Simulated assay, not measured.
Amino acid sequence: MEINQFLDATYLKTASQANLTEEETQQKVIELVKEAILYDYKLVMIRAIHIPLVKKILNEAKSNVLIGTVIGFHEGTYTTEEKLKEAKAAIVLGADELDFVVNYTAFKKGDLDLVRNEIIKGIKLCLDNNKVVKWILEVAALTNEEIIVISRLIKQIVFEDFGEENAKNVFVKSSTGFFKTKNNLPNGATLEVMKIISENAKPLKIKAAGGVRDYETALKMITLGVDRIGTSSSEEIIKREKNRNKGY
């Protein structure tokens, strides 16, 4: 298996979050893009501010690597209007795929109208502009039952409002990777969680993000039916695959 085309190589920390300067952060992004070109990853997932630079580097390299960015990140509590404004700006900058954080706080409070409305409008904006849209659930904040309900809700919206033919352009994604859990519990994708999402969201695409750091875990995710893996450990995963193919 060529695992590179499953990988969304990711760098989403702001300069302050990483305790770096803006210049150092930009250099991290440049290094990620060069790595993505070298290994032919599916996509680089970066903050919108970096899209013009990333697009320039990819164009100069004549690379097919896609550009993804995040919307409403990472809390998800932005208003629908704020998320749509952010998404429109990212589209203008040249993003190919937009990963929205579902307002899971509103969802947990039972405000399904708000959640349904933002999902419908977000999907419409992306599909109207020929973009792929992903919905980040933040699974560490949800119970298994809540994960089932919201996965089914997103699938229902796609089928009823946009047609099954658009299932290939809508993802259900596990996590931001930034959620703070208690007692060091997993804050991202686990095999259990991705199995639940797969069983309730398919035929929508699914993306495992948060905590996938090695080749063996990535392979298990793909076996479960995961279509994309968001990780900051892409190079380690690729190198492990190459060594494995060589019999090491």
Rank of each mutant, 00 (worst) to 15 (best):
I3A: 04
N4D: 09
K13F: 07
S16K: 14
A18S: 09
E22V: 13
E24D: 11
L32F: 02
V33P: 01
V33L: 05
V33S: 02
V33G: 02
E35L: 14
Y41F: 15
M45H: 12
M45W: 11
A48N: 12
I51V: 12
K55S: 12
E60A: 14
K62C: 06
V65T: 10
L66Y: 08
G68L: 01
E75N: 11
G76Y: 01
T77N: 10
E82R: 12
A90T: 08
F100K: 00
V101C: 02
N103V: 08
T105D: 14
A106D: 06
F107G: 01
K108C: 11
D111C: 10
L112G: 04
D113Q: 15
R116N: 14
I119F: 07
C126L: 01
D128M: 11
N130L: 06
V132S: 06
W135M: 13
A141Y: 08
A141Q: 11
L142R: 05
T143W: 09
I148P: 00
V149F: 14
L153Y: 06
I154M: 03
Q156M: 07
E160P: 04
D161P: 02
E164A: 15
K168C: 12
K168I: 13
F171A: 04
S174D: 08
T176S: 09
N183P: 01
P186Y: 01
N187M: 04
G188F: 05
T190E: 10
L191K: 10
E199K: 13
E199G: 12
E199F: 03
K205Q: 14
K205Y: 04
K205W: 06
I206G: 08
K207R: 12
A208P: 00
A209T: 05
G210N: 04
R213V: 13
L219K: 15
M221N: 10
T223Y: 13
L224D: 05
L224N: 03
T231G: 06
K239N: 11
R244S: 12
